[in-house]
Simulated scan of single mutants.
Amino acid sequence: MSLYRGDFMDDIVGNYEKSGKMDDLHGKGKPLEPSSGDPLQGVLKEANYLPGWLEQQQLIRKDIIQAIELLRLEGASPKVQICLNKLNTDITQYNTSCPPIMQRGFITLENIHTKLEQWN
């Protein structure tokens, strides 16, 4: 057995195959079906992995809905402005972690309803 990693793995797989442990593999002898789309996205989806920026996107969407409800109840109160300031801080953090094409603009009292549509 060689110390070269490729040869080492070849030896392991070869021994496993010789022992007959690969005879009952699902799909053995059938052609492989190439996956469509981005291979990384497929692996992440299969592993039920959600990137941090997507989780943050969902949280921001919920916070926008809460801000709209607060605005409906209280009007343009200081509480609403504090809520918008926190949202915009969260959006800044989101924009630094997501792909550039997914970045979003800040939320104001005037554009909050339009921005909610963009976050859906």
Rank of each mutant, 00 (worst) to 15 (best):
T92Y: 07
N85H: 07
G75P: 05
Q66K: 15
A67L: 01
P99D: 04
N95V: 07
C98L: 08
A67E: 02
I64S: 04
E69P: 00
C83M: 15
N95K: 02
V80D: 07
Y94R: 01
V80G: 08
Q93F: 11
L73C: 05
S77W: 01
Q57R: 14
L87I: 04
C83K: 15
Q93K: 13
T96F: 11
I64T: 00
L71H: 13
L73Y: 06
Q58T: 14
E69R: 11
S77V: 04
Q57C: 09
A76V: 02
I91R: 03
L70G: 03
S77R: 04
T96V: 02
K86R: 13
R72W: 02
Q93P: 00
L71N: 12
I64H: 01
R72M: 06
C98A: 14
Y94S: 02
I65P: 00
I91T: 06
T96W: 03
L73Q: 14
T89W: 06
L71M: 13
T96E: 13
I60E: 09
R61W: 03
I60R: 07
C83S: 15
L84E: 06
C83A: 15
N95L: 01
S97H: 03
Q56W: 05
L73V: 11
T92Q: 09
P99H: 04
T92V: 02
A67P: 03
Q93N: 11
T89M: 10
L59G: 05
Q57H: 15
L71T: 08
R61F: 11
I68Y: 10
T92H: 07
I91A: 04
Q57V: 00
G75W: 09
K62R: 15
E69K: 13
Q56N: 09
E69L: 10
L84I: 13
G75A: 09
S97M: 08
C98K: 08
C83H: 14
I68Q: 14
N95F: 01
I82G: 12
L59I: 12
N88T: 01
G75V: 05
N95W: 00
Y94N: 01
Q66H: 09
K86E: 11
Q57T: 08
K86D: 12
K79V: 05
N95Y: 01
N95D: 04
K79H: 11
P78Q: 03
L84N: 06
S97V: 06
E74K: 10
K86A: 12
Q56A: 13
R72S: 10
N85P: 02
N95E: 01
N95I: 02
D63I: 00
D63W: 10
K79Y: 11
E69S: 11
E69F: 09
D90W: 04
T92K: 11
A67T: 12
I60D: 09
